[in-house]
Computed example of a mutant assay.
Amino acid sequence: MNTTLALIRATRKKFIEFTEAFTIEQLNQIPTGFNNNIAWHLGHIMVSQQLLSYKLTGNPCLVSDTLLEKYRHGTKPESFINEAEIEEIKHYLLANIDQLEADLQTDKFDQFKTYNIATYNFTLNNIKDVVTLVSNHDGLHYGYCMAMRKLL
């Protein structure tokens, strides 16, 4: 699992670096043919990890309910995402993986609630499955954003 966590961290660092090339307006622009923008994708990967690893185990998420609702599966940008919120999300992208790694060393995730991910038609049975999925999910959304950059 250490390798998977390292891959998540590396992908998130590259994602954060990737965003530095864009203005706040570009991060909020939804390119033709897409439903979301780069700023939303950042928030979405952060929130997805929180909901899957903490909520499914009955633990409190490490971010606000406002962020959870704004970026969860099935949402889209409803308003301009300001620079302060993007910076907050960037902070959580790495800090939450550090906390997840620390929490994995405890029994915090023992009460896992089995969950089917309809998008993948895949059932999560334990926290190890979640960490594996998060790695894949982060890469998927990073790829979407790399495609978007050509249209910004």
Rank of each mutant, 00 (worst) to 15 (best):
N2C: 04
L7H: 15
I8Q: 00
T11Q: 15
T11S: 15
R12H: 14
K13S: 12
K13M: 14
K14E: 10
F15P: 03
E20W: 11
I24Q: 05
L27I: 13
N35E: 06
I38K: 02
I38P: 03
I38D: 02
L42P: 09
L42A: 14
H44N: 02
I45G: 08
V47N: 02
S48D: 13
S48Y: 15
Q49E: 14
Q50V: 02
S53C: 08
Y54G: 07
L56H: 04
G58A: 08
P60H: 07
C61I: 12
L62V: 11
V63R: 02
V63D: 01
V63L: 08
S64H: 11
L67P: 01
L68K: 10
E69H: 09
K70F: 03
Y71C: 10
R72P: 07
R72H: 14
H73T: 12
G74E: 07
K76D: 05
E78L: 14
E78I: 11
N82V: 10
N82M: 04
E83R: 03
I86C: 14
I89C: 07
I89D: 00
L93W: 08
N96T: 13
L100H: 00
E101I: 05
A102L: 10
D103Y: 01
L104H: 01
K108Q: 01
F109M: 01
D110C: 10
K113L: 13
N116C: 02
I117N: 05
A118G: 04
Y120F: 15
N121Q: 08
F122L: 11
T123W: 02
L124K: 02
D129H: 03
V134F: 05
N136Y: 13
N136Q: 04
H137G: 09
G139L: 10
G143W: 06
Y144P: 01
A147I: 05
A147D: 07
M148L: 11
R149N: 05
R149Q: 13
R149L: 11
K150E: 12
L151R: 12
L151H: 12
